[in-house]
Each structure stands twice: as C-alpha cells, then as structure tokens.
C-alpha cells in the first residue's frame, strides 16, 4: 500500500467532491492486439451534480463507468471516491464502499434470477447487515420510486425488459447511496417512463447525491448539469450549463 505516496501525488479533494478520476487510462489486452478503451480521463462529480456521458458505441463509456465504480481497475490513473484513493483500499474495503455509497445500474441490468425484485433491490443492504424491517421498507420505497411497488414479489423472468431495468435502477438508489452510476438506464423504457426515471434521478441528485448517466439520448442527457463527450476514449467536449436563459416567452420562466 502506498497511502502517503498516492495522497501526495494528486490534487487535494474538495469538500463536496464525490468522485474524481485522474488521468485514467484503460488498455484491454497486451501487445499487438491491445485495445485502448480510455486514454487519460480527468473527471469530477460533486454532490448535487449529475454528469451525462455521451459518445458513439465503443467510445469507452461503459469502461469509464465500471472503473469509476471500482468494478474494474484502470491500467493507469487514480479513482478517488469521497476522498479515498481506490488504489489504496484492500478489495474488502472497496466492496463495502460499493454496497454503502455506490449505486450501479448495469447496461444489461445484472439481476439475480433466483431472487425476487425486492430481494434483488435489498441485496446490498442485507449484505451490509441492515435490520430486516428497515431493509424491507427501504426496498419497497426504492421500488415505489420506479413505479414497481406492486411487482416486489416477482422474479426477473416474470418481468418485462423495461420492468427489469427499473428494478436495476431501484437497486442503485436503495438506502443511502450517494453516488449513482447508471449505464443507459433508460434503454429499455418508453419515452414517458424513461422521463419518470430521469426525474427521479434528478431529484436524488438535487437532494445531495451525485451521479453519472451514460446515454445515447440527448433528451435524457439534457437532465444533467454537464454533458461530457467521449470519442475513442478521450473527452472531446464538455457542455456546462450555467444559468439557463429563458427560451420561452410568456408567464413561465425560471
């Protein structure tokens, strides 16, 4: 472990900073057949901030997200979550961080087929030793937030694709998660349901969480405070929205 070294080698953490990537690079494979999925990414997400990531297929979005969530180790660079350098943490500590702090929505949902919707959602809480009652309430709250309270006892195979996706989202927001990383969380949803999910994510973020939203859909990216474009593993543009001008005539302006 190289706590001092790592801590001394990077910028200090700002108080409201939830996540920071410093020069993160990722190469899959070695030598001739090596693929550069990420080529030096610097990115921060603060409390109350939702960042959208857009980019063509294969540009590195999912790779970036799994690295940010501590699911994959980068080839080089640092990931810092709430001031903790992941490279300093033993894997047991990273696992705790993942089930307490992080909510991850996988592009392919990753539900456990032998568990009900509710059990899937509350799994991280149970692993964390939450009391039964509290776990149950939190699970139902999260399912209600995605409009699936009535489907709590169903198994994944008895749910439609869009419903499975919403269970995956419920799992990512259950309990006290502060950093939500969502990979195409609306891919299987119709436009009105997708908008409901975005509104819910936005509310969580406005209440003090932080999040990254990977999406191909500009309408969904528009819910973010910042839109980052990836091309060939590099950030090529960032769209920061400061204060909105009113585009609309008439009574309703903000």
């Amino acid at each position: 472990m190289s706590t001092q070294l790592a801590a001394g080698s990077t910028r200090p953490t700002k108080p409201d900073e939830l996540l920071r990537l410093d020069g993160v690079a990722m190469h899959y494979g070695r030598g001739e057949t090596s693929v550069t999925a990420l080529a030096g990414i610097d990115l921060t997400v603060s409390r109350g901030e939702l960042v959208a990531i857009m980019g063509a297929s294969g540009s590195g979005k999912s790779t970036l997200l799994t690295i940010a969530g501590g699911l994959t180790q980068p080839t080089s660079g640092e990931v810092v979550i709430e001031g903790q350098w992941l490279s300093d943490l033993p894997s047991a500590q990273i696992a705790i961080l993942r089930r307490r702090t992080l909510g991850f929505v996988f592009q392919d949902f990753n539900l456990i087929p032998t568990l009900t919707a509710q059990e899937n959602v509350t799994l991280p809480l149970e692993l964390d030793g939450w009391p039964r009652r509290k776990t149950r309430t939190a699970g139902l709250d999260a399912l209600a937030a995605v409009g699936l309270k009535d489907h709590a006892q169903r198994f994944p195979e008895d749910l439609s694709g869009g419903q499975q996706q919403r269970v995956a989202i419920a799992r990512a927001i259950v309990g006290t998660r502060r950093l939500i990383l969502a990979d195409e969380p609306t891919g299987a949803l119709d436009s009105a349901t997708g908008e409901g999910v975005l509104r819910m994510l936005r509310d969580r973020v406005d209440a003090g969480a932080g999040g990254i939203l990977v999406t191909h859909d500009a309408r969904h990216a528009a819910w973010a405070d910042r839109i980052v474009f990836l091309r060939d593993g590099r950030i090529v543009d960032e769209n920061v929205r400061d204060h909105p001008e009113s585009l609309l005539a008439g009574r309703r302006t903000i």
Partner: peptide, 20 residues
Amino acid sequence: QVQRRGSLRTLQDLTKTKNA
C-alpha cells in the same frame, strides 16, 4: 460540434424549465 453544443444547451434549458 459547435452546433451540437448549442442544440444541447437549448435542450438543457427547456428540460430545466419543464422540470421546474
């Protein structure tokens, strides 16, 4: 890219207005 930035800005402002 310049256009996309502008169009996204419009989209963000509209979304924010609607959300509010």
